[in-house]
Design a protein around this nucleic acid. Structure first.
Lengths: 341, 341
DNA sequence: CTCCTCGATGAAAACCTTTGAGTCGCCGGT
DNA sequence: ACCGGCGACTCAAAGGTTTTCATCGAGGAG
């Protein structure tokens, strides 16, 4: 009659052992104020003794809350996931969500099929909310998600109207200004830019920072910029193109560390010394890259861990139905000096 | 009275619309054989018309199945996650699990705190099973998980007794033999090895392959091997040490692509031409690395996507309570020739 | 024509928790 | 002495699905 069956204890068992009703036990677990100190103690003791764990399904059934959150990466080019940046975001997400005790359901969306599946899943009420990473222009997924009655926090600005959307962005433009100003302060006169793909707003913001720091007009920017597509290989090619277009260049601001690694290779192959002949600044401050290029890369740090943490906090507020004052958050960026500039 | 409220349709609604009972509707959804063709069609039509999605919580409550699986990475050194290999595994897991319509709950375990949390979570019945990546020696987590009444499939061989455990491993030893034989076939006489950390069995297996292909004894191996710790920097250092120990070396088998990238740098700095003076073979065939070293890296391919897919399949069988014939699976490795050897 | 079998179906219990409505003492105010 | 109010608690319903058991009808065997 004691412990008897090997099954997991239920709230009923806890209540019985604590000498109270199921309702009271439940209130203890949910930290309701209307419960006496004695009852509280008794229930807590019983929980501990029995190793009780609430049944998530039963709870979800009645509260209409799943205790799970989707983390969605929409990225038409699957191989981009080789970018370590992606791993960093996932890791940060796993950690931040575990800290608040909600399950993280990871969804990788590449194809239209994936989109349909994501749609079904998100509409199916299987999660309470979502964190969405969808940087590309006209991403169908964003339109889909927007229509859903589901709390969502975006990473960075998705393309299109931002009204009513919640997001946490890095100060890409400010970081780009920082980088460019730094190059100017080194006395560089001919500064060029390897941009990210211009169907991503983060790339555009960085480009704009570069533009405004140098006081350029559109034509000027075009002359001094090449698109490196956020890949290492793209960085190499863009750098080659710039060397051809602007042979006298003495500094380059590259919109990502991965591209900067490629650009460095190209520069060295072209016989330009870094930083003596050409100063280089990257973006992301991805340690695994920036510390291992030669020379080590000066870069603009955007703290992805922090970004994701803010996203999670924001979403939690939405789920608690708190009225959030600011729907958009902007995180600062800082320059990390190493040897390349 | 028709559609009325905006709430999600329930099985009851579907049944009503199809003119059958809830029970029959349920049977259709679960593909039970004991249902007439007409009923089947009617229910399916109703499901479609209403856009019905089963309530996961309710289902979980009665079936005692959550429809979720944990994917656990146990790795004391969090920065190892910068390794793109990790991203690849996660991506493969997300995909494979989505394909069979189960939720993936990602858990990253670094500290003892994390271990305790993982323990609580896995014991709490929040998932039906787990995929565990725990390569290191004497990983506490493995002992913890082993005691749980939870179906688990391991990636590679965890340290310790393997009895009763289910796992999907790559043929590390075979791959190492492949690599070493290839170097021999090129006529190389002085072949050395940069190993992974010897607290991981995959590293040991690769070392053993190297050893047996060359017919070495323990002393011989020690003389020709350095531990590179599976990091790029470690690869550099190990290569330096080997150059000092075995100046006449003309080939090196490196136990990972990341280390090989480092080793290549060291070799070039030392003025050795690759592959003319020294032939180099890596392991993993991680495209993002192997295709971008100079020269491009010949490497042993282990198909992580395939490995994870097999792990998922295996776990699904365990969950369906099928008696699995083989508890351990070994996946073949192949040599991918590029220019470094 | 009756009995039996078998397949399809329906009714209802069970899964476990939260929560609103109601109960029960007890206190202070009149 | 009575009443109102209040705090702590219990009762019981609700939430949506699966599954057991019973029922019903039809068809075949005798």
């Amino acid at each position: 009659m004691l412990v008897s069956n090997h099954a997991r204890p239920t709230l009923e068992d806890v209540a019985a052992r604590a000498g109270v009703s199921r309702a009271t036990a439940s209130r203890v677990l949910n930290a309701s104020p209307r419960v006496s100190p004695e009852a509280l103690e008794a229930v807590n003791a019983a929980v501990l003794a029995l190793g009780y764990q609430p049944n998530r399904a039963a709870r979800a059934l009645v509260t209409r809350r799943t205790g799970a959150v989707a983390v969605v990466f929409s990225e038409p080019e699957p191989k981009i996931f080789d970018d370590p940046h992606f791993a960093r975001l996932i890791r940060a997400g796993a950690r931040a969500l575990a800290d608040v005790d909600v399950q993280m359901v990871l969804m990788l969306v590449h194809s239209p099929d994936d989109q349909a599946r994501a749609h079904r899943f998100l509409a199916g009420g299987h999660v309470d909310g979502a964190l969405v990473f969808a940087p590309h222009r006209n991403d169908e997924l964003v339109s889909i998600v927007k229509k859903l009655p589901l709390p969502v926090v975006y990473a960075g600005k998705p393309w299109g109207s931002l009204r009513g959307m919640h997001l946490v962005d890095n100060d890409n433009e400010g970081g780009a200004v920082l980088a460019t100003e730094h190059l100017k302060s080194l006395g560089r006169k001919k500064i060029v830019h390897v941009s990210g793909p211009l169907d991503e707003l983060s790339a555009i913001d960085r480009l704009n920072g570069f533009k405004s720091a140098l006081g350029l007009d559109d034509k000027g920017v075009a002359r001094l910029t090449e698109d490196g597509g956020f890949t290492r290989e793209g960085g190499r090619k863009a750098m080659s193109a710039l060397l051809a277009k602007v042979p006298a260049l003495d500094a380059v601001f590259v919109a990502s560390d991965l591209m900067a690694a490629g650009a460095l290779e190209t520069l060295q192959e072209a016989g330009r010394r870094v930083p003596e002949d050409v100063a280089v600044v990257g973006f992301d401050d991805h340690v695994a890259i920036a510390e291992h290029t030669s020379p080590p890369l000066t870069s603009v740090r955007q703290d992805s861990d922090e970004q994701v943490k803010h996203m999670v906090e924001h979403l939690m507020k939405l789920l608690r139905d708190e009225t959030v004052k600011t729907k958009k958050q902007m995180l600062p960026t800082v320059l990390v000096r190493r040897e390349s500039a």
